[in-house]
Nucleic acid binder design. Structure first.
Lengths: 125, 125
DNA sequence: ATAGCAGTTGGAGTGAACTCCAAGTCAAGT
DNA sequence: ACTTGACTTGGAGTTCACTCCAACTGCTAT
């Protein structure tokens, strides 16, 4: 697959795909005889994974660390597991906070709806 | 309350508090005769709100817009409500995605745990 | 063989959200 | 009167994560 195909398929810009490769967030991609990137299905799965994790707020730093461990083979299994566990925890914490904020927004909107029904009321920020 | 008191209480750096005021994310804070900021309880509530929303991913841009509307009085009630509603929606979308990612991490960790029990196994990234 | 287009590189530029700094002010304690 | 320490300002610097650019290469179709 060419870079533009992957870009469309994964909805990530070609620049970002090159950037991810450059900083070691995905492994080096095979090239055609002409020097163009030729992504495999496996590459795509990895890219999808990275996209998903980035989207959830995992830093490039952390994901790079994960793949660096990966490159060092199976003796890093435990370290990788622990890294994932740690990220899982902090994701869960973020999620809880965001759920609280969602509730707060819901409440605030309901207060606005009441104010909008009874004309002439102002609210505190 | 002095800036350092609020900073401690809200766990936001004094620099950030000044920055939020400068960009219009919180209203201008009263000053003592000597020109020092003197935060009111109301100021604190607003700061807490901003912190909470920022933490959930709302941009400074959006929060500024909200407070700008606020300053224009009750004729902007509806606009403010709609802005909150929109942010609520996008927060909910983010939350769902992150929940999916959490599940994915859980699964991945469980796969690692299996691999760690049966020695000698390697995994795909 | 030449135009056109997708791809390549290294490196510079961008935007968001802080964070830090220097130089100065002010009130309180010795 | 002087030191100390918290505070002030405007503006520069930083970090993160891209995003863009210029100059170049190499297929493909005319």
């Amino acid at each position: 697959m060419t870079i533009s195909e992957v870009s469309k398929k994964c909805n990530i810009s070609a620049d970002t795909l090159r950037y991810y490769e450059k900083v070691g967030l995905i492994s080096f991609v095979n090239r055609t005889s002409g020097g163009l990137r030729d992504y495999s299905e496996e590459d795509c799965r990895q890219i999808e994974f990275v996209k998903c994790m980035r989207n959830a707020g995992l830093s490039i730093e952390v994901l790079k660390k994960y793949f660096d461990l990966f490159k060092r083979g199976k003796r890093t299994l435990k370290a990788r597991r622990d890294l994932l566990e740690q990220e899982r925890k902090s994701l869960q914490t973020r999620l809880k906070e965001m759920q609280e904020t969602l509730k707060r927004l819901d409440y605030k909107i309901s207060v606005y709806d009441k104010a909008l029904l009874s004309e002439d009321k102002e609210l505190k920020f």
